[in-house]
């Protein structure tokens, strides 16, 4: 019965789009998230996603697509953060204040454009089911581009994520790597928030990659597990969301929490 109704759902194009978009996002968030965890940029990413809220609302006000406004502002903020370096990235107060201001700015934009207020919850909590074929293509192209760039810079990026003080000592182009990575992070955050909303990018960008980092001893197993855990989370959440009609972001966050608890207790048991 359940399987049959699931099969029926996959016949709808909005469901196919949601599935494809979810897959693309899971892969990208898995790859970028692995580096986010290694570089301890969790809170920075969270703040960047909130800056995207102001961008999305502002774009709505100007009649542009929400995702492009969000991407633009997140990108600018990410490059600024890369420029300021650890002074801002590792400064909880600075990040917290910027984060709050972005939400405030977003609320002002929403207020000025009140008939568009329905979009607020879409931006905050994500809405994979309303992904159009056009925006799906945009996501695919952006993700592919990001993953290609990561593939190009993976070696120095990985090393400087693991041993930052040595990367500097060995004369790696640390600044260029930093800007490039933050630009890719902005794209990953924007796309991830299409699925789970700006409030919950942690679910795909931090949670599963953090578990992957914990149970991998090499680069490839880390990246592979990070993508795999993300795919399991999003596919399972899509199925449960379709079956229960509850929001996708609820299911993703629940699955990630349970997965994290399971992984942690397994590790405690083993040691």
């Amino acid at each position: 019965m359940f399987v049959a109704s699931m099969f029926e759902l996959t016949q709808y194009s909005f469901m196919q789009n949601a599935f494809m978009a979810g897959t693309v996002i899971a892969v990208l968030a898995g790859v970028i998230g692995y580096f986010v965890v290694l570089k301890q940029l969790g809170f920075t990413s969270h703040a960047l996603s909130h800056i995207g809220f102001a961008g999305a609302c502002g774009a709505g006000l100007l009649g542009l697509s929400l995702m492009s406004g969000q991407l633009l502002l997140t990108l600018i903020a990410a490059l600024l953060m890369a420029f300021f370096g650890d002074r801002v990235q590792k400064n909880d107060a600075a990040i917290g204040i910027i984060l709050a201001f972005s939400l405030g700015l977003g609320s002002l934009f929403l207020y000025s454009y009140d008939h568009y207020a329905g979009s607020a919850s879409r931006i905050l909590f994500g809405d994979l089911l309303s992904v159009t074929t056009q925006s799906l293509h945009q996501m695919e192209i952006l993700s592919l581009l990001c993953i290609l760039i990561i593939a190009l810079i993976a070696r120095p990026l990985w090393f400087s994520a693991l041993l930052p003080e040595l990367a500097l000592a060995r004369g790696l182009p640390v600044r260029i790597l930093q800007y490039t990575f933050f630009a890719l992070l902005a794209v990953a955050i924007t796309l991830t928030s299409q699925a789970v909303g700006i409030l919950m990018i942690f679910t795909l960008l931090i949670g599963p990659p953090a578990v992957a980092v914990r149970c991998s001893q090499s680069f490839w197993s880390g990246i592979f597990l990070s993508i795999l855990f993300n795919l399991i989370a999003i596919w399972l959440a899509l199925a449960l969301s379709a079956a229960t009609n509850w929001p996708l972001s609820f299911w993703v966050s629940t699955i990630v929490l349970l997965g994290y608890i399971a992984a942690s207790s397994l590790q405690t048991l083993r040691s």
């Binding site: 593939a151 993976a154 070696r155 120095p156 693991l162 041993l163 980092v213 680069f219």
Partner: peptide, 23 residues
């Protein structure tokens, strides 16, 4: 974040840090 990697992996990351591409 480093503690789960092996020593050999860390050395591997170091030795190819100056090259582009995938590890």
């Amino acid at each position: 974040e480093l503690l789960h990697l092996t020593g050999r992996t860390l050395l591997g990351a170091t030795i190819q840090a100056h090259q582009w591409g995938l590890p």
